[in-house]
């Protein structure tokens, strides 16, 4: 169960549950990379910072982050009025909640198999 009592984080979290396949890739290592990088880039986009997109992997994270942000703006009116420091905090909390669900406390028994 989601741990935060912050209603805004809950809304963001529910959105990710409903839409985002990247949180549930096959293994802990790729879930972690996706969750950390996509939430980071989403935060950057929302605060008006241009994400540093250099590598092919960056391009993938950016594609996922960009359309998550577009959806979030459409669904949640409050997000446009949120100050940058609050966005950073919200995205960090969202990242922690997602890592807890999909990696740290995931009960998926295959998550840490080295072979797949």
């Amino acid at each position: 169960m989601i741990k935060t009592s912050n209603e805004k984080v809950k809304q963001l979290y529910d959105y990710v549950q409903e839409r985002c396949l990247w949180q549930f890739f096959s293994r802990a290592w790729d879930r972690e990379a996706n969750i950390k990088n996509i939430t980071r880039m989403a935060g950057e986009i929302l605060t008006g910072t241009e994400p540093d997109v250099k590598t092919p992997m960056d391009k993938q994270f950016f594609a996922d982050a960009k359309w998550m942000v577009a959806d979030l703006k459409q669904r949640f009116d409050w997000i446009a009025a949120e100050p940058p420091e609050s966005i950073v905090r919200l995205m960090s909390e969202l990242k922690d909640e997602l890592l807890d669900l999909a990696v740290t406390h995931s009960t998926n028994s295959e998550l840490n198999w080295s072979f797949y």
Binding site: Q17, E18, L21, F24, F25, T107, S109, E110
Partner: peptide, 10 residues
Amino acid sequence: HQEDFEKIIA
């Protein structure tokens, strides 16, 4: 696999 059920239940 359980990965699929994580997606399905979410």
